[in-house]
Simulated scan of single mutants.
Amino acid sequence: MNELDDTDRQLLLALSQDATLSAGALGRKLGLSQPATWRRIKRLQDSGIIAGRRLDLDREKLGFGVTVFLGVKLATKGRVSLDDFERAVSAIPEVQTVEHVLGMYDYRLRVTARDIADFERVLRRRVMTLPGVGDVEANVLLSEERRPGPLG
Rank of each mutant, 00 (worst) to 15 (best):
R28A: 10
A117Y: 07
R28V: 07
K42N: 12
L142Q: 11
D115F: 03
A23P: 02
E145V: 15
S22N: 09
L13Y: 09
Q34I: 05
K73E: 14
D18R: 10
S90F: 04
E137G: 10
V140L: 02
D83W: 04
T76Q: 12
I50R: 05
K42L: 07
R114T: 15
G52E: 02
R146I: 14
Q17V: 01
D135F: 08
V98L: 08
A138M: 07
E3N: 12
N139S: 11
L13A: 15
L142K: 03
L57N: 06
L74C: 02
I49C: 02
G48W: 05
D115S: 09
V72R: 08
N2R: 09
Y107V: 06
D118Y: 01
D118H: 15
V127K: 03
V111C: 05
L30V: 11
F64E: 15
N2T: 14
D46W: 00
L15T: 01
R53H: 05
L62N: 11
V68A: 10
R108I: 05
V133R: 00
E137R: 11
I92K: 00
T67D: 12
M128Q: 15
D58S: 14
S90P: 00
R9S: 10
R108L: 08
E3M: 07
K42P: 00
G63L: 03
R108W: 00
D135S: 14
P131N: 08
F69C: 08
V98W: 05
T37R: 02
P35E: 05
E86P: 02
V95K: 01
R9V: 10
L130D: 01
L4T: 02
G152E: 08
N2Y: 06
A88C: 00
D56I: 09
G132T: 03
D135I: 06
G132Q: 01
G52A: 07
V133Y: 00
N2Q: 09
F119T: 11
Q96W: 05
P150V: 13
Q45W: 00
R9N: 09
S81T: 15
G24D: 11
G31K: 03
A19M: 04
V127I: 14
P150S: 13
G63C: 04
R53T: 12
G103S: 10
T76K: 14
E145T: 15
A23L: 05
L141E: 14
V127T: 01
V101A: 08
S143F: 10
K29T: 03
R121V: 04
A19N: 10
L102Y: 08
G134M: 07
E3S: 13
V98N: 08
E86K: 11
S47V: 06
L44Y: 04
T129K: 14
V66P: 01
V80H: 00
L70R: 00
G48I: 08
K42Q: 13
A117W: 03
G27S: 09
L62H: 08
M104E: 14
T20D: 11
L21K: 15
V72M: 07
L57I: 13
R114M: 08
G27Q: 07
Y105H: 11
L74H: 04
A91S: 15
E60F: 09
I116G: 03
G48Y: 07
A25M: 03
N2L: 06
V66N: 04
E3Y: 07
Q45I: 07
R125F: 05
F64V: 12
A14H: 02
S22A: 06
P131S: 06
L123F: 13
Q10G: 12
